[in-house]
């Protein structure tokens, strides 16, 4: 759901830049505090993996495809603040190098996929994981959080399109949510498989939830 240039009006993309930018600036401060030195290579590898995985669109239904966003994947393993930096880095590179997502729309794409997806997803993850605090609970929490992250980001995208006058909210919101209910299942499966693999021997790659 990378919004291209031309779909958002100036007040919408401008507001999104302010909100997304403020969240990122705070994210840098939090990452400086929380990211451990030994996690620096992991942050690079996580970004590389999410970039590569985002290229692989999977067909869902009715001639539509989706791909991994990766916000919850990064958030579960490195924490939501670091995840927002990773996602914003990927989105900026995609916009500037690959024409995937617009430049004016980059703030909105950051808001949806680098702020809303990892944070909303992480809160849901944390809620479930605290109630069900073992490996199975962690994986179930990951699955549900990943699904919600896509649906909520799609919802935010629909609001931005409606604010920009592209289509009325009553049409664009159900349409965006409808497709992303399905795309979210792909997100949930991929995210859970990767988190499951990385934590199969030791759970120390999972971000310490108590620190948030």
């Amino acid at each position: 759901m990378h919004i291209p240039d031309g779909l958002l009006d100036a007040k919408t993309w401008g507001t999104a830049w302010v909100l997304g930018g403020a969240a990122l600036a705070y994210g840098v401060t939090k990452t400086k505090e929380r990211l451990q030195e030994r996690q620096i290579p992991f942050m690079g590898v996580m970004a590389a993996f999410i970039f590569a995985a985002q290229m692989v669109n999977f067909p869902i239904a009715g001639g539509t495809s989706g791909h991994l966003l990766g916000g919850v994947l990064a958030a579960v393993l490195l924490g939501p603040w670091t995840a927002s930096i990773i996602m914003a880095t990927i989105l900026a590179l995609q916009a500037f190098i690959f024409l995937d997502g617009g430049i004016t729309a980059l703030g909105a794409n950051i808001l949806n996929m680098a702020v809303i997806a990892p944070f909303a997803g992480y809160w849901i993850y944390q809620l479930i994981q605290r109630l069900w605090n073992n490996r199975t609970g962690t994986l179930v929490a990951t699955f549900i959080a990943a699904w919600f992250s896509v649906v909520l980001a799609a919802g935010a995208c629909a609001f931005e399109l409606a604010f920009s006058g592209m289509a009325p909210l009553r049409l664009v919101l159900p349409a965006m949510l409808g497709w992303h209910l399905l795309i979210g299942i792909g997100e949930a499966v991929i995210t859970t498989v990767v988190v499951g693999y990385l934590t199969r021997v030791r759970s120390d790659l999972v971000y310490e939830t108590a620190k948030v």
């Binding site: 240039d5 692989v56 629909a158 349409a175 795309i183």
Partner: peptide, 25 residues
């Protein structure tokens, strides 16, 4: 990778505003 449009592209197509992005790079 699937060449089908993604969720947003599909919605933009169906609701008739995809052309708003044409040539706006």
């Amino acid at each position: 990778a699937s060449p089908f449009p993604d969720g947003l592209e599909r919605v933009a197509e169906d609701k008739g505003f995809l052309e708003q992005a044409e040539g706006k790079e």
